[in-house]
Design a protein around this nucleic acid. Sequence first.
DNA 1: CCTTGACTTCGAGCGCACTCGAAGCCCTAC
DNA 2: GTAGGGCTTCGAGTGCGCTCGAAGTCAAGG
Lengths: 154, 154
Amino acid sequence: MTVALVPPSADLVEAEDRDSASCGAPAPTLPPNGPQSLPIAEAAERTGVTAHTLRYYERIGLLDVPRDHAGRRWYTETELARVVFITRLRLTAMPIRNVQAYFRLVDAGPGNEAERLALLERHRSEVKDRLIELQAALDVIDFKIATYGGMCDP
Amino acid sequence: MTVALVPPSADLVEAEDRDSASCGAPAPTLPPNGPQSLPIAEAAERTGVTAHTLRYYERIGLLDVPRDHAGRRWYTETELARVVFITRLRLTAMPIRNVQAYFRLVDAGPGNEAERLALLERHRSEVKDRLIELQAALDVIDFKIATYGGMCDP
DNA sequence: CCTTGACTTCGAGCGCACTCGAAGCCCTAC
DNA sequence: GTAGGGCTTCGAGTGCGCTCGAAGTCAAGG
């Protein structure tokens, strides 16, 4: 239950706000198929998310992936980082709806940080509640396991 | 992450193995509508599970609820305790399949405690892994929240 | 030129765990 | 006797989050 404020995997967390030029230098309007961009298959491999799911995420508005002239997707660090952050949120069972809401805010540009914060904090508190419930349920299971040693007299 | 061996809500945990006469006195073949048995609506209220879901659980073999002469279900402490334990397992996201497997073992009577134990222990270890992942994801979110204070220099 | 293969879109399908609704039965109260 | 309410079964529907397959496009290699 410790709350680490050390960047858990810093490069991925930092990158997520770089798009929509939230602050600092504007995004460089990368040339499709630019420096380190990856085609969908490699993006899938790198993020551990299937290509199908990457397209699905884009369909539902979680991503906006640049294309080359032939319409093929090229994932830059920006998109890859976002995908990773999405998987983190999903891992905590944040409903897709809320993930959508969050990235709608991000994509709306700067000025709504308070809202993003509120959304994340609400979610964090839900996750913490679930952690506690989960731990309690685990305790029940542990108790059950323990009693299988000395059955019939729990 | 502490493992409590104090019965988390003892009455409910203890009761779950009493059926199928796993040890000690055989189940007393209670008269339908016996001492403290409840009709489905009250069982639902007591366990926090809808009547629909209680019937569903029975349909898929998780429960075997005694009936009165008119075919109505009467939930005794045995069934109520089992329902509660099911909800604990479900709370930890144990797939219904595995819950079914577990109670098949329980219903098969004594002699397979090692298998039950193995099933629970496997699940426990999965849950613990998930707890760790969940905590890590929460740390990412916490980090994100923290950086919303001093945007642009995480 | 033709094949190969990775990509594209679109819509449909799937697995899970419920959740609901229709039609009917049974008991009690009036 | 009859109205009401709570129960029964059964099968179908729902919501979520993917997951898949068909059919087509495009670029590179032989």
